[in-house]
Structure formats: C-alpha cells, structure tokens
Simulated scan of single mutants.
Amino acid sequence: METLRKALIVGALLGAGAGVGSALFVLVAPGEQRKQAMLKEMPEQDPRRREEAVRTKELVLATLQEAAATQENVAWRKNWMGGGGGKSA
C-alpha cells in the first residue's frame, strides 16, 4: 500500500511539473504576429545580405574546385581571392 501511495505522489508531482512547464511555455512563446516580425528582421531576409552570401559561397566553391585540380597547397596563399601563387613568409 505504501508503494502505491508513493507512486501516486510521484505521478502527481510529475504531472504538476509538466503542467507548470507547459503553462510557462505558452506564456513565453511568441505569437504568430511576433514570429512574422522576427522573420522579417532576420539578416537572411535582406536581399543585399543574400547576394553577399551567394557570392561568398561561389568564391569558396571556386577555391575548393581549384584546390582539387592542383597539387599546390592553396592554404599558403597570401591573397586567397586573387588566385595567385606564392607563400607567406
């Protein structure tokens, strides 16, 4: 009987904790309008930022393709963007 009582108490405490956690989540979570406003404020939504990210990815891809096509260690280049050789001192 004592074991059943303890199990019921533990179950009630876990249920109460889950209820409090759910209530706090509902209170803290932003509404749909706030979510939309947050999405509009994200840097990825700015067209200039997206173009810059695309250009950066293109440069990284070009560097990786060049590195794959040559035996030169491209990590030692002084000017990564220029594509010229040369080791730093």
Rank of each mutant, 00 (worst) to 15 (best):
M1N: 06
T3S: 09
R5C: 02
K6E: 15
A7D: 01
L8P: 00
I9R: 12
I9S: 03
V10M: 09
V10T: 14
V10G: 08
L13P: 00
L13G: 00
L14I: 15
G15H: 01
A16C: 06
G17A: 14
G17Q: 05
A18Q: 08
G19V: 02
G19I: 01
V20D: 00
V20Y: 03
V20S: 01
G21V: 05
S22L: 12
S22R: 02
A23W: 01
F25W: 09
F25K: 09
V26C: 13
V28Q: 12
A29K: 07
G31M: 00
G31N: 07
K35A: 13
K35F: 09
Q36W: 09
Q36V: 02
M38Q: 12
K40W: 08
K40M: 11
K40Y: 09
K40E: 14
E41K: 14
E41Y: 11
E41D: 15
M42F: 10
P43G: 05
Q45S: 10
Q45F: 06
P47H: 04
P47K: 03
R48K: 15
R49W: 06
E52W: 03
E52P: 04
A53Y: 01
A53Q: 06
R55D: 14
T56Q: 14
T56M: 12
K57E: 03
L59P: 05
L59R: 15
V60P: 00
V60G: 00
L61V: 01
L61E: 05
T63S: 01
L64M: 07
L64A: 06
L64R: 06
Q65P: 02
Q65G: 04
Q65V: 07
A67H: 14
A68V: 09
A68Q: 11
A69T: 07
A69G: 10
A69S: 13
T70Y: 07
T70H: 07
N73L: 03
V74C: 01
V74F: 01
A75R: 03
A75F: 03
A75W: 02
W76L: 05
R77E: 14
K78R: 11
N79W: 03
W80E: 08
W80R: 11
W80C: 02
M81H: 03
G85Q: 06
G86C: 08
K87T: 14
